[in-house]
């Protein structure tokens, strides 16, 4: 009898603990374990909004064909925002939408999502400012990918992975680990070994729809990836795609330094400056 009661007690206690765990905020629980999940591919909202979202997705993945009168470079939005803007740590759209409008840490001005899209067109795509319809469609697509994301909260997997926080202002790399300043020569070796098979020895891109990394049809010197630490952060988690072996922090930095040392367009001056 005594034993039985004790057993029952234990079960009840365990149940109550379990119940407590499940009644905790689900979004918090999700944040601690895995990254946010956007709506699945092909899952569009009904009606005209769905049409707009589809159009936005088309622009996102097929910029050159989908934007009328587009005269930018060979990249698309999805060249950098992998998996159609869904992949965590590749600046996913669902990590961005809830954070706008935000204050630009450098200029201290308020930046809106529409401003950011225009900035991407100018700096990364080296294109003329997109028209209103293009921005609207992209906005709708980005909105849709963020369905369920809490507004104003930094989600796990947003932006890029942080590597040993090199100082972006000065360009010095004094990480806590064994990081040394990036070496373009070592970067060249690594590039030839790990990247050139897709992006080409001269960074021209092309194979497996891989984008050009330098030269006239790649991103400009004003884009985010022209910053070595930022490019390294991107590479660290995302390149080479689909392979088990990832680059180390140091390798990412070296490759980034090599790629960014190559010639590329100067980029347009933003209006108003």
């Amino acid at each position: 009898m005594r034993k039985q009661t004790g057993f029952f007690l234990a079960i009840v206690m365990a149940l109550s603990v379990l119940g407590y765990a499940f009644s905790a905020n689900p979004s918090e629980a999700a944040a601690s374990s895995k990254t946010f999940e956007p709506p699945g591919k092909g899952d569009y909202p009904p009606g005209p909004l769905g049409a707009l979202v589809k159009q936005g997705e088309e622009i996102f993945t097929n910029t050159r064909e989908a934007v009328p009168g587009y005269r930018g470079n060979a990249l698309t939005c999805a060249s950098c925002h992998l998996d159609q803007g869904r992949k965590p740590y590749a600046a996913p759209m669902w990590g961005a939408y809830p954070m706008y409008p935000m204050v630009d840490p450098k200029t201290r001005k308020t930046v809106w999502l529409e401003d950011r899209i225009r900035m991407c067109f100018r700096n990364a795509l080296n294109a003329a400012p997109p028209d209103k319809e293009t921005v609207q469609a992209l906005d709708a697509y980005i909105f849709w990918l963020s369905r369920g994301a809490p507004i104003g909260h930094e989600l796990k997997g947003r932006g890029y992975v942080t590597i040993a926080s090199p100082d972006r202002e000065t360009g010095f790399f004094r990480g806590p680990g064994h990081l040394r300043s990036p070496d373009t020569l070592k970067g060249f070796g690594l590039y030839a070994k790990s990247c050139a098979s897709c992006h080409g020895r001269s960074g021209q891109g092309g194979l497996h729809r891989s984008p050009p990394l330098w030269g006239p049809s790649s991103y400009t010197m004003k884009s985010g990836f022209a910053s070595v630490p930022l490019l390294a952060e991107f590479l660290r988690r995302n390149m080479p795609p689909g392979e088990d072996r990832q680059l180390t922090d140091q390798e990412s930095l070296d490759i980034a330094a090599y790629v960014d040392s190559q010639p590329r367009p100067r980029g347009k001056v933003p209006p108003g400056n």
Binding site: Y97, Y100, F143, S146, R147, G148, P150, I151, G152, H153
Partner: peptide
């Protein structure tokens, strides 16, 4: 819009 953005802090997008 900024006022409504700030007031929605924590509310889910699209729901």
């Amino acid at each position: 819009v900024a006022y409504s953005y700030w007031m929605s802090r924590g509310a889910p997008v699209g729901v």
